[in-house]
């Protein structure tokens, strides 16, 4: 059979899938029993929970330390996924920090606190990036940073949960998140410049806008 040459990334992805199938998939019956417990024996819910757990396990695969207890690792992800799923169902009843912030701003408008509808120059740059660029930038982070960024920002895990799953200290979670995001900001800013987005003009425009607003007061 003629093999088509594969890129380094494709090879790594293929290897990852093989490892995942050999190590994680065989534990499914055992995990399923846990999933049934967590969902009070509701089969459909348990299957959804399993699917989400395994999809996450695949995404976090690089952060699993080969040779350590894989069942324990999968069970931790299952447990936190289950907790987050039930939390999501009742989420609309909660008022979070950021919702509170919106209220604060509205409430204080009368007291002439600055409320700005415009975006900062840098956030406008981010807004104009292609989704592929962002995904590339995240993929290119060091695995230990990528796992934390993915878990905290995309999957919404708390610092404590991330610390549990990755078996690291909360302080390490924080520093990896901060450094990961700093790298992303720098990389994405560079992408934007390469793609011809005029960062300086955007910044200038934003300054002018600010000045205009200021003169209205």
């Amino acid at each position: 059979m003629l093999m088509t040459p594969k890129s380094q990334a494709e090879k790594a992805e293929a290897l990852k899938l093989i490892q995942f199938e050999q190590q994680a998939i065989p534990l499914m019956p055992k995990l399923m029993r846990k999933a049934m417990e967590f969902t009070f024996n509701n089969r459909a819910d348990a299957e959804d929970l399993m699917q989400e757990t395994y999809a996450k396990a695949y995404r976090y695969w690089e952060s699993f330390e080969q040779g350590t207890n894989i069942y324990g690792w999968l069970k931790t992800i299952l447990k936190h996924t289950s907790i987050n799923r039930s939390a999501k169902e009742s989420k609309h009843q909660q008022v979070g920090v950021l919702d509170g912030m919106a209220d604060y701003k509205l409430g204080d408008e009368a007291h002439s606190v600055t409320v700005r509808a415009t975006k900062s120059a840098e956030s406008e740059v981010l807004d104009n990036l292609a989704s592929n660029d962002v995904q590339d930038a995240v993929d290119n982070l060091k695995p230990e940073f990528r796992a934390v960024v993915q878990m905290a920002i995309v999957d919404g895990y708390s610092y404590q949960e991330i610390a549990d799953i990755l078996e690291i200290k909360i302080g390490t979670v924080m520093s990896r998140l901060h450094r990961g995001k700093k790298t992303l900001r720098e990389v994405l800013y560079k992408y934007a410049q390469e793609e011809g987005y005029n960062v300086e003009a955007a910044a200038k425009e934003s300054v002018v806008r600010e000045a205009k607003k200021g003169s209205k007061k």
């Binding site: 900062s120 956030s123 981010l126 990036l129 962002v134 995904q135 993915q150 920002i153 995001k181 992303l184």
Partner: peptide, 16 residues
């Protein structure tokens, strides 16, 4: 900026 960065990360990486 940080909020926007989180938003674009979320949008780009959700179905990874």
């Amino acid at each position: 900026t940080e909020d926007q960065l989180n938003k674009v990360i979320r949008e780009s990486c959700e179905t990874q």
